[in-house]
Each structure stands twice: as C-alpha cells, then as structure tokens.
C-alpha cells in the first residue's frame, strides 16, 4: 500500500479523534439547512417562483448546497492549524512524503465519512419534505463528476487557509472569514441568480462558485449540454491552478519556518 493510501486510511481512523469538531460543524449545517428550508418554503411554498426557482427546485438547490458544505468541512485545516501552531509540523517536514499530497490524501479519506453523513441527512430531509426533480442519467453522471471535483477544490482552499497559520496564531478568525467569504461567493448562502449583476460577475470569475454553484446548476439542469461539460472543465482548471498556487504558498511558508524558526 502506498504512503498516500495509508494516510487516507489513517484519516479514517482519526475520524474518532475529530468527531467533536465534525459533529459541531455538521450540527451547524443541519440547523442552517432547517432554517433555509423554512425560510424558502415561506417564500416559495404557495407556488411562487423567485429568480427562476420554484419550491421543488430550491429544495434541490439547498440539498446540493448542504452536501457540498459538508465535504472537506473540518478535518484538513483544523488538523493542519493545530499542528502548525504547536510546532508539530516539523515532524511532517522530515517525513519522506509530499506535504500537500499527504494532506489531500487525508482530506479524501475523511471526505468519504463526510459524504456518508451528508447523504444520510439528505435522505432524511427527502423523506420528510418530499421529492425534488431528479436529473436524467447523463446529467446525473456529470453532476457526480462535478461533486467529486468539489473535494480537491475545497481541500485546496482550506489548505491554503491552513497555511496562513504560519503567519498568524489566530486560526479561528481565518476559518470564520473563509466560511463567510466562500459561503457568499460559492452560492451556498444565496443562489448566484439572486445576486445583483456586479456581484454575480465577481463570483463567476472566482474559484468559489465551482464549489456549490456548479454542481447545483448541473443537478437542476440549468446548463444542459456543452455548457455543463464546460463547467466541470472549469472546475478541473481551478484545481490545477490552485494546486500550483498552494505549492508556491507552501514554499514561502516553509522558508519562513526554516529561516525564522517558526
């Protein structure tokens, strides 16, 4: 078994150790889902539609958004930040494996657990609130592919935020700020269709929209055919670009650690 698969497995085993932050963020997202369901039902429940969303479509949007929120929500940056702050990261540096790939392996391992938890919640909500329009098999396949791309994408954003702990002790603030910014710009707080035009244009050129907006639009069939495939391609492009950017950031951070002694 290669070192990265081993790390993904260790992440599973560590899941128990990280169950507290995981359950915290899960409960937060579940309560948020409850609030959003109630709020949008109040607005759309009697057959209205807003910005092109009917109530069944909004339900689907909220569930996809909840699902992407759950992926890579706790493990990566939380564990990284605590190791960087305690200085334990020095041990990671002397291991014969690539730091970034190792963290990705862990995030992937943990994402399986997060996906399972999120899927359970979604299933319960579907039973309680009734169905949502399901996409055709072809679009469903594209949706699943884009969902899979969300994991490395969210990982890279979280990873770069985690690296900021080389500069500041205050991870709480960074994590809250990241949550707020990516919540807004990904479409998780409100669908991008509700944004004023300028904010929408800003969001569309940033990587965050690929986290929630892209899979949600695919699920709802808002971009059939080629545009849908292109959206997934954009996700992949962002992964490559952010992967490279994260590497640059890592080198700068490590130089800082080794030169200034943390």
């Amino acid at each position: 078994m290669g070192p990265y698969r081993a790390m993904a497995r260790i992440a599973w085993r560590n899941a128990l150790a990280y169950r507290v932050p995981f359950l915290m963020s899960l409960s937060m997202m579940v309560f948020n889902l409850v609030a959003m369901f109630a709020l949008w039902q109040a607005l759309l429940g009697d057959g209205n539609s807003l910005a092109g969303f009917t109530w069944p479509q909004m339900k689907a949007y909220l569930l996809v958004s909840f699902f992407t929120n759950c992926l890579v929500s706790t493990f990566t940056d939380f564990a990284m930040a605590s190791r960087i702050r305690s200085g334990a990261v020095a041990v990671d540096l002397v291991k014969p494996v690539d730091y970034q790939k190792s963290r990705l392996a862990e995030a992937l391992g943990f994402a399986l657990l997060e996906a399972a938890a999120a899927a359970t919640v979604c299933a319960v909500v579907l039973v309680a609130f009734g169905g949502v329009p399901l996409p055709s098999p072809g679009r469903l396949a594209l949706f699943v592919a884009s969902l899979a791309a969300v994991v490395p994408l969210k990982f890279l954003i979280a990873y770069m935020c985690g690296l900021l702990c080389f500069w500041t002790q205050n991870y709480l603030g960074i994590s809250l700020a990241r949550g707020a910014v990516s919540g807004i710009l990904s479409g998780a707080t409100v669908p991008l269709a509700f944004f004023p035009a300028w904010l929408r244009q800003v969001a569309e050129v940033l990587p965050f929209q690929a986290v929630t907006n892209t899979p949600a639009m695919l699920f709802l069939g808002r971009n059939p055919g080629l545009p849908g495939a292109l959206a997934v391609a954009v996700q992949l492009l962002w992964i490559v670009a952010l992967w490279w950017l994260a590497r640059r950031l890592w080198h700068v951070a490590v130089r800082r650690l080794t030169v200034h002694g943390g």
């Binding site: 205050n170 709480l172 960074i174 809250l176 700020a177 707020a180």
Partner: peptide, 13 residues
C-alpha cells in the same frame, strides 16, 4: 482578523 471575520459572517446573513 476576528473583527473582519465577524463582520463577514454577519454580512453573509
């Protein structure tokens, strides 16, 4: 950082 984080969080709401 925390002031900005609080403003952003409430800003999303």
């Amino acid at each position: 950082i925390l002031v900005v984080a609080a403003v952003l969080t409430q800003g999303a709401g």
